[in-house]
Amino acid sequence: MLEVQNLSMRFGGLLAVDQVSLDVQEHEIVAIIGPNGAGKTTVFNCMSGFYKPTGGKILFEGNEIQGKPDYKISRLGLVRTFQHVRLFNRMTVVENLLVAQHRHLNTNLISGILKTPNYREREQKSLDRAAYWLDRVGLTEMANRDAGNLAYGQQRRLEIARCMVTEPKLLMLDEPAAGLNPAETKDLNQLIISLKEDYNVSVVLIEHDMSLVMDISDRINVINQGRPLASGTPDEIRRNDDVIKAYLGEA
């Protein structure tokens, strides 16, 4: 469903991403790994429309999306989280989830001010969806706390829930396990698999936690210094000499 072809991104003299290609099929979890500064986040930023790539193509469901504005790409069903959690800190947890559903609530101002039955019904639906996902990530008790006051692990989960209420087709997670303790990482592991199995969402994942990556990924792409180094199933990557030398060996 997603195809990245020869993607390049240059910042002044620095070629941060150089001819990277990858593809994601429906119902698949694809990981991108590589040392710090390899250009993984930059690939994400190009895919989600935050950067306009200097070269290459990105196809989503057959349509070119490179260079499209970020909010339009996310409306296509390509939603991401951030390496450093970005929540709406001074809004409550539920409100964070409601903001994400503005598309389902795209009513005009007047019907909202007058609270027409149609408007109420839709508002109730988005509340129900928010409640469902809060329960799913175990944050129901926190529903009316300010998002900024949550513990770090909870913030991470809320960020994923916030993506899921938009009912995306493809979810991009940038280091979702960073800063989580082993128990939380295990929960996350299960959550990501369930996103694929139960909600039919494809996932692209940047991660440093090797056990998590090897466990849940269907395929893995390795990037080193902006260039693609290897790609294949977890087993293939584990046995790849280049990868072992460049990345796994050091770790």
């Binding site: 970020d70 909010y71 951030f82 709406f88 001074r90 903001v99």
Partner: peptide, 16 residues
């Protein structure tokens, strides 16, 4: 409010 809190996150969720 979302835009006030975090413009980038708001855009990533499809807010124009």
């Amino acid at each position: 409010e979302a835009l006030r809190e975090d413009e980038i996150a708001a855009k990533s969720l499809g807010l124009s």
